[in-house]
Design a protein around this nucleic acid. Structure first.
Lengths: 201, 201
DNA sequence: GACAACCTACCTACTGGTAGGCAGACTAAA
DNA sequence: TTTAGTCTGCCTACCAGTAGGTAGGTTGTC
């Protein structure tokens, strides 16, 4: 069994998955309007019309790509919850995961952060998926902070929701700074410090 | 004298300034590839070719727009330094300035934050201007933190540079979160908390 | 023979950009 | 004071290329 029943990639054929993988890369590079079907066609070595066969419209393709990214994130966070007992360590692991991604440039930035920046120019169906990712992530961080607060490993400055919003903003901003500086290590510098501030004194 | 000698907008004719103003709006909405000369032409009520008369290529126009934004920021920060003696108050004023901008949607986001997100897809001349803005801002925040630290109004967790990077990331991330949530007040929630954390205990 | 995957060929609309011209304001020389 | 030259701002008309998307046909596999 190559793909489990709960695998969200299951409904996609191998070629469709390849298309989505490339879309992820192109999306991370220049956002929604930064690539075309022709670009993808060249990368996956089929004609433009074949991309349309898998994903009728660009909005469909990007929505699917973002939805998969969102799902992967949810699953990743869940498995992180299962793997680490300490909420503080979960946050560190989350940051470390992104630090490695950025270091390897795969992906060099969260596509949802990028799409959030250009949200008014993005099709509604994509935008709602992006908003969903932000809500998912905020909810996870807030719940992690609450758990850490109750077990004593994390401290809260304000309520968990506000502290979670600050932490999430630091992470997304760190991605922008790292990209602007052309220095992947800057992400970790910022993320590490942001996380340490949440550690109980 | 309508424009002073040091006014960076001086070299631009009224129409060119109008074009830049509209470019700012369009840029803030959807990034570099989110608008066209035709869009601007309609907004400023001239033909496309006339935009090319003022700014031969799109990269020229966007570079000029970002350079002006960068200059305005530098001047704004300098006048803020002059107006407020307390470094902590300077940071608060900076956040409040952006909170008001976002609340009024003018601009709803820092165009440099947006362009940083899609940096690989942006022409080199624009990218270097964006990088410059990040450097300017980081330098100002770091210097403000240092001053606040020496006068005792601000505390440092790490060195001023790292703390400045965290603060800057929070601000940029807050812009993304506010846009994603469609809630301008979220920016202030995050920015306020980020600033308070820097206050000396 | 149904269906998925892919193709060629094509479409319309729009992209950034150019060529060349024209009206009006400014300047300089006759 | 006329007049020629020049500059700015804007125009129409056009270009090649690309955008997203469609119609209809071929191939290969269950």
């Amino acid at each position: 069994m190559a793909t489990s029943r709960s695998d969200p990639q299951a409904p996609y054929s191998p070629k469709a998955q390849e298309i989505i993988a490339r879309t992820n890369e192109l999306l991370a590079s220049g956002g929604y309007n930064g690539f075309s079907y022709a670009d993808i066609a060249e990368l996956v070595d089929v004609r433009k019309a074949s991309i349309h066969h898998h994903f009728p419209a660009k909005a469909d393709l990007v929505k699917a790509t973002v939805a998969l990214h969102r799902d992967a994130t949810r699953r990743g966070l869940a498995s992180l919850d299962a793997a680490k007992a300490d909420p503080f360590e979960r946050l560190v692991a989350y940051c470390r995961y992104w630090a490695e991604c950025i270091e390897k440039s795969s992906p060099p930035i969260c596509i949802c952060a990028l799409l959030a920046a250009e949200l008014p120019a993005v099709p509604a169906e994509v935008a709602s998926e992006v908003r969903g990712h932000f809500e998912d992530l905020h909810a996870w961080i807030a719940s992690t902070l609450e758990q850490g607060h109750s077990t004593g490993s994390l401290r809260l400055t304000d309520d968990a929701s506000a502290d979670a919003a600050v932490f999430m903003a630091s992470i997304h901003g760190a991605m922008l700074s790292a990209r602007a500086a052309g220095d992947a290590s800057l992400f970790w510098t910022i993320a590490k410090l942001s996380t340490e501030r949440l550690k109980a004194a």
